[in-house]
């Protein structure tokens, strides 16, 4: 539990503080304009980084499972439910 709380706290500091900082730093000086391409594509690449990280964990798990728990795997053994009525 402590671990989760600490983890969320660290994530919170890492993510929220710079974001809030950025939000209030945005000025409105004439002649200097926000580059919308930079903002939007930056958001996109950030999300893709996270998506591909999570995706590789999820699909890696599924692929490993499919390989390890197939019935033809040398270490496959009957589950504890086989032969019972569940």
């Amino acid at each position: 539990m402590k671990f989760i709380f600490g983890f969320l706290l660290i994530i919170g500091v890492l993510v929220i503080v710079p974001a809030v900082d950025f939000a209030f730093a945005a000025g409105d000086e004439p002649g200097k304009y926000l580059d919308r391409r930079a903002v939007i594509w930056n958001l996109f690449y950030k999300m893709m980084t996270v998506a591909f990280t999570v995706g590789s964990v999820v699909s890696g798990t599924i692929i490993w499972q499919v390989w390890r728990f197939r019935e033809s795997h040398p270490k496959a053994k009957p589950t504890s439910y086989e032969g019972t009525d569940w």
């Binding site: 999820v58 798990t61 599924i62 499972q65 499919v66 728990f69 197939r70 019935e71 496959a76 053994k77 009957p78 589950t79 086989e82």
Partner: peptide, 16 residues
């Protein structure tokens, strides 16, 4: 749902 599927297959003896 995805979690449930993955956890169901875990430690199974899967016939593909």
């Amino acid at each position: 749902h995805v979690f449930n599927f993955v956890a169901t297959m875990w430690n199974g003896r899967i016939r593909f």
